[in-house]
Write a protein that binds this DNA or RNA. Sequence first.
RNA 1: GUGGGUAUAGCGCAGUUGGCUAGCGCGCCAGAUUGUGGCUCUGGAGGUCGUGGGUUCAAUUCCCACUAUCCACC
Length: 375
Amino acid sequence: MFKLINTDGAARRGVLQTARGEIQTPFFMNVATSAAIKGGISAPELENQLKCQVMLCNTYHLHIRPGDELIRDLGGLHTFANCHLPILTDSGGFQVFSLAKLRRIKEEGVYFSSHVDGRKIFMGPEESMRIQYNLDADIVMAFDECIPSGQSREYVEESVKRTTRWLIRCRDEKDRLNSKAALMGINQGGVYDDIRVKHMREIAALDLPGYAIGGLAVGEAKEDMFRVIESVEPHMPRNKPRYLMGVGTPSDIIEAVFRGIDMFDCVMPTRNGRHGTIFTSEGILHAGNARFDKDERPLDINCGCPTCKSFSRAYIRHLFKSKEYLGGRLASQHNLYFYNSLLERIRLEIEAGTFTAFRNEYSEKLSKHIEKENT
RNA sequence: GUGGGUAUAGCGCAGUUGGCUAGCGCGCCAGAUUGUGGCUCUGGAGGUCGUGGGUUCAAUUCCCACUAUCCACC
């Protein structure tokens, strides 16, 4: 399933085998919640032009619309979206957090009222597994509760215990379905290191094909996030892929790889891209800024993406100021290419044993706003 | 030409029974955004309140003239 090729400090270079091909690790998954990258990028474009290795889709959203059974009847998510890449589906656990006002948590699962039409939707571990089975994802995530930051120790303890019970139910349901997908367990525990570590040890004992750290980057301080990763990482199985869910900025990713993480996903390149924030090899810039009004250079002078090969900053700024959808699409395209290339670079640096030097040079720079550049 | 209305930020408008740093929306400028509810949030710049005069302790507000503009009628 997972093979480590080499390490460089705590950073790991490996290969993850799935039913639909090998994935080189560390890697970044491109978020296509509703089986499409928001802003208008198709799966073949991800695969052929943007260096994407894995597409990520969402259980809750696809269950509501168009329905997982419909997707199953049409041949599964890969056929439906014309995606030849491996697909990971998130379980709906994040929606327990993000749609907090529209749901109630019980032992058996979560009662949502649909954000689309308000109808009642029940999702527990079994439902989440069945939906992900219908979608026919290659990697499926356990149904958990993503706990908001700032919760009391008592609340977090109870929630984590329930998440563990749910994980066992996920595993059992997946076995019952005879699914060949890889199920990853998710570590929770807020910013309480001891709860995190205890939980990680318990779920590691289940010997699942991979483990994720969830519930971070949900409002806690950055130092808490990295401290939690450092506490949990030693208890994550060495021979399994490790996934830091929902993270993050280029710097966050470099720092997490430095601490032994292999997998990432984040809406940042696409959500921020749709609104004009551009990640470049020199740092962050805002495409709509007035200073680009006559700038004929590409977004990133060191980039070979389809956007940078064809369009100027001046044109893209104009698109954002005019609220043309093309602006968001071109920016998302660039940002995804940038993220996927960054992970490619990270892999090369780990292979060469030069990752720490790379981290020291780029980690801070890549997530900082470019104030002024030399032209 | 006659009668009536209007004139406040780039645009569209509030407001002041005369009283302290004159507001709002959009736009503009900038920032945030971390397993996506197709978003959202946060700052900032910008006005001699059409022009000239009068009344008043005090006028963007009341009065007069002028200018511009809109509507109706001729």
